[in-house]
Design a binder for these strands. Structure first.
Lengths: 305, 305
DNA sequence: GGCTGGCATAAGTCAGCCTTATGGATCGAC
DNA sequence: GTCGATCCATAAGGCTGACTTATGCCAGCC
C-alpha cells in the first residue's frame, strides 16, 4: 500500500522536539510542556539517538538547530498545528452539537414543541434529533442522549425518569356528544383506534372489564401515539394515549376523557446517557432543562386535577 | 502568539487512533503497531475520554468511525504522513551525508586526493569536508567524523590512530645540488621555511644540534604544512614536513630529504567520532576506508624505507 | 571571582502502558 | 441449533521508561 512505513520515533519525544525547536531553548520548552528541563534534555537525546544524528548544537548558553534539526522542525511544527486544529474542531463539535435518539411521539408531541426554549437558553448548542422506534444501544451509536421507555435498569447508563408510561382513552367531544357513557364497557360501542394495542385490554381490565373481546373492532392500527391522538381529534374514534403527550388538546377540549381512569404500567419514559459522560456540559444542560420542563408539566397538571 | 494551544491529547493514543481509523479494525491496527488488540482498545478508549465523545461505533464484528472520528481521521493521517516524510528525509540525510571536520593539510594533501576512490566504493554517500585549524568539539557541532592531531585521549570519542605526527626537513633538489650537506647543522646555511615553528628546534635537537639559534632566519611563516611543502618544491628553502603528506613529491624527486632523520612527537593524527555513533553505517564505511588507505600507505612506504 | 543562566547526567520513583487471560456477542458452517 | 471462529471489552498485574530531584559543568557577566 505505502512505501515501507519507516517507523515513527516515539511521539512524546517528537512533541518535545517541536517545542524545543520553536523556543530554541530546552528550559522554555520545558515550561511550555509543564515539565522539567531535565526531561526535555532526556527526550531530545532520545530522539537524537533514534534519528542517528544530533538535532541541536549545544552552545554555551543556548541551543541551536543543526541542519537536520532545521530540516525537521518546520514539518513537525506544521504537522502538530494540523493536529491541534483537527482536535480543536472536534472539541468544538463535541461541545456544541447534542444528538438525541428519541421515540417518535416524544419527539413530536413533547420535545420538538419545546426545543425553542432550550435554544434560547443555550443558543450555542445545536440539537440534532433522531427518531427511532427501536431502542438504540449507545455502544453501537454516537448519540449523546436517549429518550426511551422502560424500567430504568440499563447498565452503564444514567437514567432520569420523566413521566410514567400510562394510558387513558380520549376522543373528540363530537364523538360522544350524543352517546351515554355510564360504564367503561360502553366504550366498546364506539370505534377504537388501534384496538390491537395490548394496552387496551389492560385499561379495560383496570376499569373492571376483564377479558374484553376486541376482535370485532376493525384493526386500523396506527402504531404511533401521535397519529392515534390526531385520529381521535379528527373524530375517528377513541384512542388510548398518554395524556402527557396531549396537554394542549386536553386543556382546550379538542380531546375529552370519557372516563378519568388511567391504566398504569411498570414502564416510564426515561432520559438516559452513558454514565461515563455525565460530566459533559451539554448533556448536563439538556438533562437539567428537560427535567425542569417535566417538573413544570407536573405543576401545571397535577394541581389542576 | 497562537490562540490558546488547547493541549493535544497523548500522542501515543493519537497514533493508535490513526492506525485504527485507517484499518477500520482494532486487531489489524494492533498488528501494524506491533502490540496487542487490548492495548489498542485501551488507547482508543483513552482518547475518546479525552475528546469527550466516542470516535468509533462498535458493531458486532467491526468498528466504524463516528462523525467525529471521520472528521478527525483524515487530518490525523495527513499529519502523520507529513511526520513520516519529514523523518524519512532526515533519515536519508543521516545515512547519505557524511560531514567531516579536518585539519587543513590532511584535507588537501591526503584526504581530497583520495576521496574519488571512496566515492567509487560508496557512491551513495556524499562527503562534506570542512577545514578548520581549531579542534571542533563534537558537542558544539554537527560533524560525523573529525581528523585531528593529539594523543588520542578524548573522552566520549572513539579514536583511531592514522599516522604519527613527525617531521623531516625536505627541499627541492635544485636547492641542494651545489651544497655539501654532511652534518645537520649545515642546513642552517640554507633558507628555512617557517623557522619560528618550534618543531625545528626539536628536529635539530634529535639530530644532535641542541639549542640551535634560528632567530637569524627571516620569519616567513606559512603556518600550513601544505604551503610549506609547496614553497619547498618551489625551491624557496627547506621545509619541515610530515612525509605522509607528500608521498608523491618524495617519490618523484620533486622533494628530497637531505637527512633521513625523523623528529618524532608524542602526537599523532587521529580519526575520531562520538562513541555513541560507532554503529552508524556511513561512519563505519568511512572509518574502514580511511584505515585501509593508511595501511596501504604504510605498505608502500615502510618496505621501501 | 562569585553569580547567574543554561544544559547534561545520575539515581530513584511511580504512573501508565502493555500483556495475558477471560468474557460476550455475532456470524457462519455443518 | 450448536459449535467454532472472529472481534472487541475488561480486569489484573508486571514492568518499562518517562519524569523529578539533585548535582555538576561551562561560559558570560558584573
Amino acid at each position: 500500500m505505502s512505501k515501507l512505513p519507516s517507523k515513527l520515533p516515539p511521539m512524546s519525544a517528537v512533541r518535545v522536539f517541536e517545542a524545543a525547536a520553536r523556543h530554541q531553548s530546552f528550559t522554555r520548552a520545558a515550561e511550555e510542556l509543564g515539565m522539567t528541563q531535565a526531561a526535555v534534555s532526556y527526550q531530545i537525546k532520545l530522539l537524537e539517538d533514534r534519528v542517528g544524528a544530533p538535532l541541536f548544537i549545544r552552545l554555551p548558553r543556548q541551543v541551536t538547530l543543526t541542519a537536520k534539526g532545521r530540516q525537521l522542525a518546520p514539518a513537525v511544527t506544521e504537522a502538530f498545528e494540523a493536529l491541534r486544529n483537527a482536535f480543536a474542531g472536534v472539541e468544538e463539535m463535541v461541545q456544541t452539537v447534542l444528538s438525541i435518539t428519541t421515540l417518535s411521539t416524544f419527539a413530536s408531541n413533547w420535545l420538538v414543541p419545546r426545543l425553542g426554549r432550550f435554544r434560547q437558553l443555550h443558543p450555542n448548542i445545536a440539537v440534532q434529533v433522531s427518531v427511532s422506534t427501536e431502542i438504540i444501544e449507545f455502544a453501537h451509536s454516537e448519540f449523546d442522549i436517549g429518550i426511551r421507555s422502560g424500567t430504568g435498569d440499563w447498565p452503564g447508563l444514567e437514567a432520569h425518569v420523566l413521566f410514567p408510561n400510562q394510558f387513558m382513552p380520549v376522543c373528540s367531544p363530537a364523538l360522544v356528544r350524543d352517546v351515554e357513557l355510564r360504564d367503561p364497557v360502553d366504550l366498546l360501542s364506539l370505534p377504537l383506534i388501534s384496538p390491537s394495542d395490548p394496552w387496551w385490554r389492560d385499561w379495560f381490565s383496570a376499569a373492571g372489564v376483564p377479558n374484553v373481546d376486541l376482535s370485532r373492532h376493525p384493526d386500523n392500527s396506527l402504531g404511533v401515539q401521535q397519529f392515534e391522538g390526531m385520529a381521535a381529534i379528527a373524530g375517528q374514534g377513541v384512542a388510548l394515549i398518554n395524556p402527557f403527550f396531549f396537554p394542549e388538546d386536553l386543556a382546550s377540549g379538542r380531546l375529552v376523557k370519557p372516563f378519568d381512569l388511567m391504566a398504569t404500567t411498570d414502564r416510564s419514559y426515561w432520559l438516559v446517557y452513558p454514565k461515563a459522560r455525565r460530566r459533559s456540559a451539554k448533556i448536563e444542560a439538556f438533562r437539567d432543562w428537560v427535567l425542569s420542563e417535566v417538573a413544570g408539566d407536573s405543576e401545571r397538571t397535577s394541581p389542576a386535577a
